[in-house]
């Protein structure tokens, strides 16, 4: 317990140092920008904006992953498991291809958020049977609705004009350069509230890891806690997707990695996942804009390339402490 608290404290203390380091990396060169010159100040603003966006989104996706893995009792659950990715992809593609995106920087995020949330509503509605939410039908309807949305998305991409295509694909791979201030503020607000809610749900999440029957037996209102957890995960995920598109892998690997460090108790796991996920995405984005500078790599590509081997290493070494495999 003491060791795990110390590890959590270490993760939290490491965060400002790592974020400051990211500030020194960018397409315009390595080193802290000189904020006394107008050009330097602009670069500083740009980088700070991206780092904060990366941190917020990484944190939100990791927390959503933690919740879904606990509620679905499935190690492969991640924030996009219930179809939010293809649902919001559809919305973003619609906004770009109908020309709505030209009306302002908020059009794509808003469209993505709305269709993502709608998709989830459909998935939940399908999963309700006899007034009860069944975990298995939830996963099943998530997979089905998700593949229907993907087909529609593929269809739209196939008929898209060339100039729109680039935008759609860039969005599908994730982009942390948030162009609209109000969108940033609203999404960050939703994500922060969602993460706080998830953390406060920790006792219920712990109990639900034993199944909803046992959770009921230890005095948890299992149905209500399940609904609350799913709602919070949905909100944080759609806000993250609306803000920066689809960034894969963060919500799957960070919870696993952090669980190997601080254990399965959600009281520690949720804050640790938030800080570690935020750092992870900020670092991935710093790498994305530095490695091939001035060419920029989509951040989603970096998260998968860095995350995949890292995940395998953890799975191989810490199999027994993270999950029963």
């Amino acid at each position: 317990m003491k060791r795990r608290l110390a590890l959590l404290a270490l993760i939290v203390l490491l965060t400002p140092c790592v974020l400051a380091l990211c500030l020194a990396l960018g397409a315009s060169g390595v080193g802290f920008p000189d904020i006394r010159t107008p050009a330097g100040a602009a670069v500083f603003d740009l980088r700070l904006n991206r780092i904060l966006a990366g941190f917020a989104i990484g944190a939100a996706l990791s927390c959503a992953g933690v919740v879904l893995q606990a509620l679905l009792r499935n190690p492969l659950a991640e924030p996009y498991v219930l179809g939010v990715s293809s649902g919001s992809g559809l919305g973003a593609a619609l906004a770009i291809l109908t020309g709505a995106a030209a009306h302002g920087p908020a059009a794509i995020p808003v469209a993505a958020f709305v269709t993502g949330a709608l998709t989830l509503a459909v998935v939940y509605a399908l999963a309700y049977a006899g007034g009860r939410l069944s975990i298995y039908s939830l996963i099943l309807s998530g997979v089905i609705v998700s593949s229907v949305c993907s087909s529609l998305l593929m269809f739209m991409v196939s008929i898209a004009p060339v100039e729109g295509l680039h935008n759609v694909i860039w969005w599908l791979l994730g982009n942390l350069q948030v162009e609209s201030g109000p969108v940033f503020a609203v999404c960050a607000g939703i994500m922060t509230a969602g993460m706080a809610g998830i953390w406060l749900l920790s006792p219920e999440l712990n109990a639900l890891c034993l199944g909803s029957e046992m959770a009921h037996n230890v005095g948890v209102r299992a149905g209500a806690a399940l609904a609350a957890g799913l709602l919070l995960a949905t909100l944080t995920t759609s806000a993250a997707v609306g803000m920066a598109g689809l960034i894969g892998f963060v919500g799957l690997i960070v919870p696993h990695a952090v669980r190997a460090l601080v254990g399965a108790d959600h009281r520690l796991l949720v804050p640790a996942a938030a800080f570690a996920g935020g750092m992870f995405l900020a670092v991935c984005d710093a790498a994305a804009r530095t490695v091939l500078a001035p060419q920029e790599i989509p951040v989603g590509v970096v998260t998968s390339l860095l995350g995949g081997p890292f995940f395998l290493a953890i799975l191989y070494r810490r199999r027994r402490t993270g999950w029963i495999a």
Partner: peptide, 25 residues
Amino acid sequence: EVETPMAFTVEEIVTIGRSAALSRW
């Protein structure tokens, strides 16, 4: 039997028995 995919320690599992009494704050 009680099974969980998560790697809880024995003490954490027993603490889940206090769920209804614990403060979330």
